[in-house]
Nucleic acid binder design. Structure first.
Lengths: 210, 210
DNA sequence: GTCTTTTTAACATATTTATGTGATTTTATT
DNA sequence: AATAAAATCACATAAATATGTTAAAAAGAC
């Protein structure tokens, strides 16, 4: 038996969900709430398998609710419900440990399937949400891995610069003379086309050199 | 009619897939290949709606194949097939514009559903893959947005430092005296708990201050 | 064995940066 | 009006950095 707690401010949708779930074999609604104001205690009290959490609610909204749940319980499966696939909310919800993200227009049969999926360790999401997630992947980590052909030693020195070491400290760290450090750094600047320490550091981050 | 081209080195699985898809109403296999060596020309030639692409193949593997496809065609839907949900491959495939990621053990009915889903703009993935994707979200972008309470001007100065400006250049840029720049930077260092320009720059990147 | 690159190092010097100590003016907040 | 925070500027000085020139081992490639 899969136990569910529902957070949803719209009474009709809340009732509809409850009837659907309670009317299905193997599913049971333990409680429903119209806001997340006391979500931490409520989830602790009922220990449901799955929480259905509306995103848009007056008072504490679904995202805040999710955070509060995760602060006290890392195990319970939380499925976010939303009308629109709002990019920012999707991202934030997934970042904060939501187990899935469903549009409210999901057909009832699918919804039950998704709930079950979540209890089995899956991460159900409607395909439009999944599409958004993929887009985030494509945008975020551009591997513009330009290669400046830094030698091993140069890479090492650059790493220390990034870590905030002064020339003197680098020399001590690598057991070489400070003038040697200068030599390396001069070469690094040439290769990176910069002429100051902070530019080199910035470039190391921007171009993910380390 | 949804047209499909298959890349799969295992003859049995290739045949099985072909029969399944050809035997289903509204689906048709245009061609099958056992490696990706000429994937660019082949995809151009057939212009399929969907490409089913095995990840592990001798010669050009599926990931390389995907890149080659995306180099010439941004529209065709590419679904990756794999035996295991290998974290690294999933990430790389999604980064390179895969439209979905399926385990080979996906039941036939689901597979057809997923193919259709892809043509409709969805991003089908088996739930175990989706779970991995969620985990990536939770790990990667820690918004450790510690707030160091930099003032507006300080933020501005820090930005210029990150952009490689010297004190003199900052003064010119902001129409203030170089001693004022010093003042601001001194304050910035206090707030960030650093004591050099490059440390400040590094911290700006690490903590996403700008 | 020669050539190239890398790593090492020294010396010199102009510029930049870091740090300290004040102080005045603006801008918000109460 | 009083207070606090932010922004402005000045003077001084030690330390660090950037730049140039030069050169000798060491390691790898051909």
């Amino acid at each position: 038996m899969i136990s569910v707690v529902i957070y949803e401010d719209n009474p009709q949708f809340r009732e509809g969900l409850t009837m659907l779930i309670n009317g299905s074999d193997g599913f049971s609604v333990l409680a429903t709430y119209k806001n997340c104001n006391n979500v931490a205690e409520e989830v602790k009290k009922w220990s449901p398998d799955v929480v259905l959490m509306d995103i848009n609610m007056p008072g504490t909204d679904g995202l805040e609710g999710l955070k509060k749940i995760r602060a006290v319980d890392a195990e319970v499966k939380v499925l976010m419900l939303t009308v629109f696939d709002d990019n920012k909310n999707v991202f934030e919800a997934l970042r904060n440990g939501a187990n899935g993200y469903l549009l409210k227009k999901t057909p009832p049969a699918k919804l039950l399937e998704y709930i079950q999926d979540a209890t089995l360790g899956g991460a159900p999401m409607t395909s439009s949400i999944a599409t958004q997630v993929l887009k985030m992947f494509q945008v975020i980590p551009q591997t513009k891995n330009q290669d400046y052909c830094l030698s091993e030693r140069e890479t090492q020195v650059l790493q220390l610069l990034v870590d905030g070491f002064s020339y003197k400290m680098i020399a001590a760290e690598l057991f070489i003379a400070i003038d040697t450090v200068r030599s390396h750094i001069k070469k690094i600047y040439e290769k990176l086309h910069v002429n100051s320490k902070s530019e080199a550091v910035a470039k190391a981050f921007k171009d993910r050199l380390l």
